[in-house]
């Protein structure tokens, strides 16, 4: 005879078929199954002897990482070389962006990019009045835009478009050069509006 003792388990069933086959079904919890095995040599569930590492997978090369690592942080980490200006960005915008975002970035039909007069319309969430970091504009355009040709723009084009959109929102001079040094320095009007989640477990409604 042998027995298995299951602890800290919800919705688990242990079935015995003779003394040879033990089926342990843990269908409903993500917690690791803890089995105290009273008798050696009995087939059990895992994971008493979880190794520190399994050795599966392989080490990523620096080139592999560089090919994928396109993210840009607010401190500018990840911004590439190159630069652009609103003057250059205006032409690209007219060609590749205005169809979805409108001639001046306010008309749609897709997301409004330029805040414009925010006193007249409610719920405008454009770059100039809602986006807390300028680096996000660069990161997002580079990874996802234009919608029908994502990832098709050069870094210089992305700098130029970012410059144009910041200029259209009144946050950058028309001829200013935008690059890895100047972009993170732009303070966005909405920066201080953002607060971290303050909801907690319990009865309070927030």
């Amino acid at each position: 005879m042998f027995w298995l003792k299951a602890r800290s388990m919800q919705g688990s069933t242990i079935k015995y078929i003779g003394t040879a086959l033990v089926l342990v079904t843990v269908a409903f919890t993500g917690t690791s199954l803890k089995i105290s095995r009273q008798h050696p040599g009995v087939l059990s569930a895992d994971t008493l002897s979880h190794p520190a590492q399994f050795g599966f997978g392989r080490v990523a090369t620096a080139a592999e990482i560089a090919a994928l690592d396109i993210d840009v942080r607010p401190d500018g980490k990840g911004l590439p070389k190159g630069e652009g200006s609103a003057t250059e960005g205006r032409a690209i915008y007219g060609l590749k962006c205005a169809g979805c975002h409108g001639a001046t970035g306010t008309e749609g039909p897709n997301d409004r990019l330029v805040a414009g007069d925010t006193t007249r319309a409610r719920r405008i969430r454009a770059i100039g009045n809602y986006w807390p970091y300028a680096t996000t504009v660069f990161d997002y355009i580079r990874r996802a835009m234009p919608f029908n040709q994502p990832g098709s723009l050069t870094d210089q084009e992305v700098y130029s478009l970012t410059a144009f959109l910041l200029h259209a929102n009144g946050l950058l001079a028309e001829n200013a050069k935008l690059n890895a040094k100047t972009l993170p320095q732009i303070k966005m009007p909405a920066r201080d509006k953002f607060v971290p989640d303050d909801r907690v477990d319990g009865p309070e409604i927030r």
């Binding site: 942080r73 607010p74 807390p132 990161d139």
Partner: peptide, 18 residues
């Protein structure tokens, strides 16, 4: 999912800001 990058700060991506 294709990539996970460990960091000491959030990245402030478009989907967590705008």
């Amino acid at each position: 999912l294709r990539r996970i990058e460990l960091s000491d700060a959030p990245f402030m991506t478009r989907e967590e800001t705008s």
